[in-house]
Design a protein around this nucleic acid. Structure first.
Lengths: 148, 148
DNA sequence: TATTGTTATACTCTATAACTATA
DNA sequence: TATAGTTATAGAGTATAACAATA
């Protein structure tokens, strides 16, 4: 029986690249990178007790995070404060940071809607729901390292 | 009104990375890279009239394609033949190439099923269908450059 | 000894340009 | 001149290792 399944990556890779272009453009319009926006997004949702914790939440590198935080702090979008454990920095977004994050996010959502405008409304909602589940499964697979 | 939408990339990126790991592992078990497998997959489905045409079909670089074809040809998985236009190479997969491609593909599909085993059967089928549509939209957006 | 933030280094992937041969 | 294949070069993105300060 011939296998007419299409490898998922053949669909997911172009989709990821298109979404990446949308986020780069939206963040770039405010002089930020996609990762700097992601930092702002996560810290605005919940202040972080340390940079290491934030890196883990973002599935990002604690090394690369340093330079991004330098940029965000210099632009007044985020503040570093020494924590109780004096090795750590507590991180919080400023009002300016939250506003910038919201503006970028609005542009991203508009770009997503435009990209996927071929989908019917209920199909789009289903895609969002299923993608969230699949993304969650992928993150857990990464943690447990039980992938194949 | 607060925006509780989750950026699609936050789900798609981990998913793409997990799928990439699966394909790398499956192709690597046969001494190939993900792109070399992708070349084999596409050429087996339909022989190519030129390397440039193949690169376009794969949304891949014609430059990087050269070294990958060298490997596949040296391993007897694919043949280059001069075309009518003597600047071009016609490309076709060998029987060995098709068999190798099928073995890798089977491992990939097993890995995908394992990764997404948390999804119910009908949810999984819907994800496949919607991802195919979204991937198609992303590829077209890339062609027309009308993204945001 | 282990962990946090930090810096420096190396490696992979990708994008761009340039060369040749054919058209 | 334009295009195909090829090669070489440069850049971005990422991973790894090392360091000082603190626990």
């Amino acid at each position: 029986m011939p296998d007419d399944r299409v490898d998922l990556l053949a669909s997911v890779l172009p989709l990821a690249k298109a979404l990446r272009r949308i986020e780069d453009a939206a963040a770039g319009a405010h002089g930020l990178t996609m990762w700097q926006y992601a930092v702002l997004l996560v810290v605005a949702a919940q202040p972080s007790g340390s940079q290491a914790e934030l890196a883990a939440r973002l599935d990002y590198s604690r090394n690369r995070l340093v330079a991004d935080l330098d940029v965000l702090e210099a632009r007044g979008l985020l503040v570093r404060r020494p924590g109780a454990d004096r090795r750590t920095n507590e991180l919080a977004a400023t009002d300016d940071g939250v506003a910038t994050m919201r503006a970028i996010q609005a542009a991203i959502h508009a770009g997503e809607d435009d990209l996927l405008s071929v989908l019917a409304d209920d199909d789009r909602a289903e895609l969002d729901r299923l993608l969230r589940l699949a993304g969650q499964a992928a993150r857990q697979a990464r943690e447990t390292r039980e992938v194949v």
